[in-house]
């Protein structure tokens, strides 16, 4: 830390190429990302902290926020278990068609969110061939979020599991440890940082999700309307400062989760 600071001060002038490139990159990033996001934060505080608080605690906004955060926590936990299990099967199990399953895991990332919503509505909507109708329910919202967040935990746990040395497990087993003991004492501690960071990524994606929930939630305020959809209807209703306040709150929650990921990864690296 100090070394870089000293080096930075010693070379206050860097090559023109660097300066030009850095200038253009920062300009591009500022015009498209940073200035617009700063305007959201600024707009949300237009009427002071009291106005901000009033905007996020209107009954419909508050209902949307609590639903979003509650559903996202549930989705993150299901992903923690199912994602780890899927990664386990993909790494340790052998069966025909495993390569296809492995490729399919990334499909939710490649599929446009509105298509994901439509696809789920086709199977779990009013015309469901299975007779399961989750349209306009909170279960439908959770289902849509599970679909779009599927790859996160799988793809963070999988590489760690591939690298994991099986010698330790064999040693534990030969010393008389049961399968459960080996899992709890040897495997789980090694996988935990990756599992948690995958879970945090799934959580941040869930609280931000819009497209996949639009069709299946039916956008019913107080019942199935998630935060992003609430922001959307506020924008349509020309209440930009209300929309900005909820947006800012979502951004803060996402940043806290991302910082948590970063800390977890560092913690994992120190232990590894």
């Amino acid at each position: 830390m100090t070394a870089t600071a000293v080096r930075g001060r010693a070379r206050t002038r860097f090559p023109t190429g660097t300066a030009l490139g850095l200038g253009s990159a920062v300009l591009y990033l500022s015009l498209i990302v940073l200035i617009p996001l700063a305007f959201v934060a600024w707009k949300s505080l237009e009427e002071g902290p009291g106005g901000f608080w009033a905007s996020v605690t209107t009954p419909d906004a508050w209902a949307a926020l609590t639903l979003t955060i509650g559903a996202s926590i549930l989705v993150a936990l299901i992903n923690l278990v199912m994602g780890t299990l899927i990664a386990w099967v993909l790494v340790r199990d052998r069966f025909p068609g495993k390569g296809v399953v492995d490729t399919l895991i990334d499909l939710p990332f490649a599929l446009p969110t509105i298509v994901a919503g439509l696809v789920l509505l086709a199977l779990y909507g009013p015309d469901s061939p299975l007779g399961v109708n989750l349209a306009y329910t909170r279960a439908g919202v959770v289902l849509a979020l599970l679909f779009v967040t599927l790859p996160f935990v799988v793809r963070t746990v999988q590489p760690v599991l591939i690298e994991l040395d099986q010698d330790m497990e064999q040693a534990a087993a030969s010393l008389g440890a049961s399968n459960l003991q080996t899992f709890r004492r040897i495997i789980l501690p090694n996988l935990m940082p990756a599992m948690l960071s995958g879970m945090a990524l799934a959580f941040t994606r869930s609280i931000a999700e819009f497209g996949s929930t639009v069709l299946i939630s039916g956008n019913l305020p107080f019942k199935t309307q998630v935060a992003a959809v609430n922001i959307f209807s506020q924008i349509e209703g020309d209440n930009l400062s209300g929309a900005a306040a909820i947006s800012t709150l979502l951004l803060i929650v996402a940043l806290v989760a991302l910082i948590a990921v970063d800390l977890l990864q560092r913690w994992g690296r120190h232990r590894g």
């Binding site: 617009p36 996001l37 959201v40 969110t113 941040t204 609280i207 931000a208 999700e209 819009f210 497209g211 935060a227 992003a228 959809v229 922001i231 959307f232 924008i235 930009l240 929309a243 900005a244 947006s247 979502l250 951004l251 996402a254 940043l255 991302l258």
Partner: peptide
Amino acid sequence: AVSPVVVGL
């Protein structure tokens, strides 16, 4: 980390 709707806003 930004919701698509927030991008639009």
